[in-house]
Nucleic acid binder design. Sequence first.
DNA 1: TATCTTTGACCAACCGTTCAGTCAAAAAAT
DNA 2: ATTTTTTGACTGAACGGTTGGTCAAAGATA
Lengths: 196, 196
Amino acid sequence: MAPRSKKDNEIIKQKRREQIIRHALESFAKHGYHRTSISEIAKAAGISKGLMYNYFDSKEDLLIGVLEFVMPQAVDTIFNSIAKKAETLTPRELMAFGIERFFEVMKDQADLWKLSMSLAMQVSDMPKIHQTFVQMFDMTFRQIEQLLKATGMPDASLKARLITAQLDGIALHYFVMGENYDLEAVKKAFIQELIS
Amino acid sequence: MAPRSKKDNEIIKQKRREQIIRHALESFAKHGYHRTSISEIAKAAGISKGLMYNYFDSKEDLLIGVLEFVMPQAVDTIFNSIAKKAETLTPRELMAFGIERFFEVMKDQADLWKLSMSLAMQVSDMPKIHQTFVQMFDMTFRQIEQLLKATGMPDASLKARLITAQLDGIALHYFVMGENYDLEAVKKAFIQELIS
DNA sequence: TATCTTTGACCAACCGTTCAGTCAAAAAAT
DNA sequence: ATTTTTTGACTGAACGGTTGGTCAAAGATA
């Protein structure tokens, strides 16, 4: 009785979802969540406004979809590249390498980061989104904690808190100050202080 | 020709402005800029919507007014209390004292901070607001830079960048994680590392 | 009366969301 | 192979609601 194979439909749906997510991310990142309308995203994605609601129940649901799709990718990009080098580098070198990767990803995905930080500050009415952020913060924290423990550092947990805070703080300042912020110099100083 | 002396009018206007700003800040901080309507603020301030536009040209203008009124206050609160103790403490002790004050203000004015950070990430369409943030970031940076120079530290400028980033990063994490974040322990570790 | 302040009804624009209906393509029937 | 039926992805007009912003009129003050 099925007019179209279920497999085909699943594939089509998945592709569409990703297509919408990609354009939604772009618009959200560029103009912010509240300033972006569903119509805008639909237009950018080349589909009708109504179809958006076949894939996402609401605007907030779309936002959750975007974040859940894209945030783990960013974290994995950093820590996968660390894992690859884990065998050939000392824990200390590994840290330095990880920091470098962090700043690369931060610069590459600046828009996503800005959006995330902006949202993270105002999620009191969006518990699901809040949870997403807490999970991601926790993920990076534990990764760094583990790296520090490998170097035999005492108080690795607290130190990891300080380092992750510093990383995100630098990102914050870089995003606000823009070109006036000498990211390279700060990065160098940060690594220097960390390794010594 | 004026039925009321111009001086009186100026004073009244100033008071009204502050009254509006205070309630606007409260609403903006609680629900975010976009989620807060002019009517809401007017109601909270006990005046009509129309009157709002006698004091501020637009919603964005009101936001600028709020930030320019309230942000220097927060910064001054911290650094004035430092200045008072400047004579009786060593630069190193002064730093520790300043950090303590920083965290106090951060906790007291959490809502304002959240609002500021959230806005700071998405000001590409609001150049005036962007400038306000750059100025304030620069202010705190230079204050800390000066403190560090007083301790005779080399590379005081870069070190100041790292410290301010770490402070704001801790604030960021604290705001997102909430109760799950052991702010006291992090603060202690931060000061410990800074002083030693 | 003359001047300034304040009001709140009003407006046009926009928003997220819904839904009745379309249509190409796949399955079933012939 | 041809026709008929069934599907569901897709459209876009429409809706209820909200928004930032305006303005003529009323109120207050001197």
